[in-house]
């Protein structure tokens, strides 16, 4: 049986050092990330800034998922959780009309494997009079609702998803929260 030389041993140790560093990055960092909680309490008494001048009053008892929430000057995303239900609002620049915004959101929902849009789109409005469209969709093991608004050169997309039981219980609170969506009125 051939013996391994000192040079070959050092070469192999170096290679395993590279593997260990890569493993630290690809497996270690996600493990540390998973070990730390990502949810923060959020007040249901005051508007939460989503980004690009858009605010919403979160539902009572909701927590904020800081791993998805990213407020910004021209874009923004906020993810609230109510038990097993996800309530996500995304804001970004948009130069089309409400119908094309609705069509774009439906396309992105149905681009996910197993996702299907259900029923027609209905008109909705926020307390401030912001007009929007809403609809429903199904996904493997869960159901969802979506809503979209266009204002000040922005599109505001709302997606809500969870298992039917949880969704039915929390949907009134979430829809009440959606009606509190406001923009700062500055054209972008």
């Amino acid at each position: 049986m051939a013996r391994i030389t000192r040079r070959e041993l050092m070469n192999l140790l170096g290679a395993f050092g590279v593997v260990a560093t890569l493993a630290g990055l690809a497996l270690g960092l996600p493990a540390i990330d998973r070990a730390l909680p990502g949810e923060r309490p959020v007040s249901a008494d005051e508007p939460y800034p989503i980004g690009a001048g858009v605010t919403v009053v979160p539902p009572l008892g909701a927590t904020l998922d800081v791993t998805v929430t990213r407020p910004g000057g021209t874009t923004g995303t906020a993810l609230f959780r109510l038990g097993g239900v996800q309530y996500k609002i995304a804001v970004r620049p948009f130069d089309g009309d409400l119908r094309s915004a609705g069509s774009s959101l439906r396309q992105r929902i149905t681009a996910n494997p197993g996702y299907q849009v259900t029923g027609p789109q209905l008109e909705i409005a926020t307390a401030d009079g912001l007009a929007g469209l809403q609809g429903g969709y199904t996904a493997p093991g869960r159901s969802g609702r979506y809503a979209v608004f266009v204002a000040d050169g922005l599109t505001i997309e709302v997606t809500i998803s969870g298992v039917d039981l949880d969704l039915g219980r929390t949907l009134p609170q979430i829809e009440a929260s959606t009606r509190t969506l406001r923009t700062d009125g500055r054209e972008r």
């Binding site: 960092l29 996600p30 990330d33 730390l36 791993t67 929430t69 990213r70």
Partner: peptide, 20 residues
């Protein structure tokens, strides 16, 4: 996966604003 995890850690140890 590593960049996503590190950005999440910036949000968790700092804030969503810092991460954004």
């Amino acid at each position: 996966p590593a960049s996503t995890a590190l950005e999440d850690l910036v949000a968790k140890l700092g804030s969503p604003h810092l991460a954004a």
